[in-house]
Computed example of a mutant assay.
Amino acid sequence: MTSELPAGLDVDFELTRFVRRVRARSLRSLGEIHPRLDYGSFTFLLLICDAPDGIRGSEIAEELGVHKSTASRAIASMEKLGLITRIPDPDDGRAHLLVARPETEARVAEYRRNSHERLLALLDDWTPEEVAVFARSLTRLNDRAETEF
């Protein structure tokens, strides 16, 4: 495949533009989860919610590509807000896993439902085939990015 894009098509620009809009919308909606939750901690919280058996802080730092101290500050903030808790790691008695509190999981699930509904509204004039092609293309892009970035 050639690395040149068709004239007038700037995928990077359009992805950045979309991510900026999603981030701005997310910032306005974080209060649904907690009124003092910031966007930086939100990204950590999503990883914790997506690990129902718990996740170590070091795993979060690695997954997000941040320094452990950055992860530690975000984790401490979420603990202070009462969004997450620590449980003993069953595989290593010296370590702890981070888990979302049940009420946090419920709020994040509702946030995600609302977000999904907003996305469906954006795609309401697309054909099912267009949505399927777009979803497959995004999956392919993300799969490749996981190995290349």
Rank of each mutant, 00 (worst) to 15 (best):
T43R: 15
F42E: 01
A132E: 03
S77N: 12
L27H: 13
I33L: 04
T43W: 07
L9P: 03
D91N: 15
H34W: 01
D53K: 14
G54R: 08
L119P: 05
D50S: 13
L30N: 07
R112Q: 11
R20T: 07
F18W: 12
G65H: 00
D10C: 02
R20C: 06
G93S: 12
R144H: 12
D92E: 06
R56V: 00
A145C: 07
P128L: 01
E146M: 15
G65A: 03
I84R: 08
A95R: 15
V11I: 10
P6S: 04
E63Y: 12
L97H: 09
L27R: 15
E110F: 09
D91Y: 14
E79H: 14
R73Q: 08
R101K: 13
A71V: 01
R21P: 01
A135F: 06
T16F: 10
N142G: 15
A51K: 09
S115C: 11
D91H: 14
R107S: 10
S72M: 02
A95G: 06
A145D: 06
L46F: 02
G54Y: 03
L15Y: 11
K68P: 07
R86A: 09
F134W: 09
S58Y: 07
R28D: 04
L37I: 06
A132F: 03
F18K: 12
K68Q: 11
V133G: 04
V66G: 08
P90L: 01
S77Y: 06
P35T: 02
E110Y: 11
Y111V: 03
R36E: 02
R118E: 02
I84E: 03
P102Y: 01
N114L: 11
A24T: 03
S58T: 10
G82Y: 00
A51E: 04
M78A: 06
R20I: 04
D10G: 10
S115V: 05
A135N: 09
L83P: 02
L46T: 12
T16K: 13
G57Y: 03
I48S: 07
F149I: 14
R113F: 05
D143V: 10
V131L: 07
M1N: 13
L120K: 14
L122R: 15
A109P: 01
F149V: 12
N114C: 11
T16H: 13
G40F: 10
E103Q: 15
T127C: 01
I87T: 12
M1D: 11
H96L: 04
